[in-house]
Simulated scan of single mutants.
Amino acid sequence: MSRLRILLPPILGSFLVFSCAKQEERPGKDCSEPLTVPVSAHSLSSSDVATINSLFVRNRLDSRNLRYVRYVRESVQTFFSPYASFDSQVVTVEEYTNGLRIFTAQLIFAFKNGSFNFQNGQLSSGTSLNTTPTLSAGQVGELFQAAITEFDAGRLKDVQRQCVSAEFGYYNLNAGISNAPEKLVKAWRVSPKNQEYPFAYYQDEAAQLIYYDNGIRTFR
């Protein structure tokens, strides 16, 4: 049973490759652009990518299905005996399968003095699902506008003035549920072109909204 989640992120991404079937003069539902983010499109500098590749090779870790999205290197001082400092390298990645992004699969690999230290998050076991969508980018764009109308009507006119980008991939419906087995489905991520918010995920075959986020956070 899938779960509808509406959240009112943080999410990423540069080096995005657009494949356009657009009509810039007619924004809105007629202007939905398929978006492809290859696993090789790391959102880091070439020097950082080379450093991370070396780390994974040296530690016999398979990085073929990993897109690097964040890298932090710093000297860390311990505060217990024996007191010492060590070289810390932390890599945040997004995981792919069948050449498509798993939207819910972000992991962290930590290295200490060049050696693998720990991994935060579980690698996907992959899927036998194919890579052919049922919906088109245009249909997903229309679903997105319907969600904005229902949950965020104040933004509808702004969204209708621009194209939307729709990326096809996979979504783990059990992400975030403790001890629940992975349940991948074919899915779409859609947002206004070149904007982080609002965005939504849709289950492809059911044309069903999984998650909507307009970026608004309330702190108490």
Rank of each mutant, 00 (worst) to 15 (best):
G126T: 06
N59M: 02
E33V: 15
Q106P: 00
P9G: 12
D48G: 00
R5H: 09
S14W: 05
S191F: 14
N65G: 09
L143N: 10
N130Q: 10
T78L: 09
L135W: 01
V190W: 07
N120Q: 15
L184T: 00
R67D: 06
V164K: 13
T131G: 02
S85D: 10
P82L: 05
C20T: 14
S115Y: 07
V57S: 14
R189C: 02
I6Q: 01
K193W: 04
I11W: 03
S43K: 04
A50P: 00
G215R: 10
I6Y: 08
A207H: 00
V39C: 13
A206D: 11
S128I: 07
P9C: 03
V37R: 14
A207C: 02
G126Y: 02
F111W: 04
L61S: 01
N130C: 08
Y212I: 02
N174G: 02
T92F: 06
K157G: 00
I148D: 04
N117W: 13
S136N: 09
N113K: 04
Y170T: 07
F111L: 04
Q145H: 14
K22M: 01
A206G: 03
Q122F: 03
V190C: 02
E142H: 00
L16S: 05
R155I: 01
S63E: 10
Q195L: 12
V49M: 01
R70E: 14
P192W: 07
I6P: 09
T97C: 12
N194F: 15
I216T: 12
A180E: 11
L184Q: 03
A153V: 06
S88W: 05
Y201N: 01
A175G: 00
Y202D: 01
L156M: 03
L209M: 11
I210G: 06
G13F: 10
A21K: 10
Y71A: 08
Q77K: 13
S19W: 01
K183V: 03
D213I: 01
Y197H: 12
P192Y: 08
V159K: 03
R101M: 13
V72R: 11
S54Q: 15
R5V: 14
G141F: 04
Y211E: 14
T218G: 00
P38A: 08
I177M: 06
E150G: 00
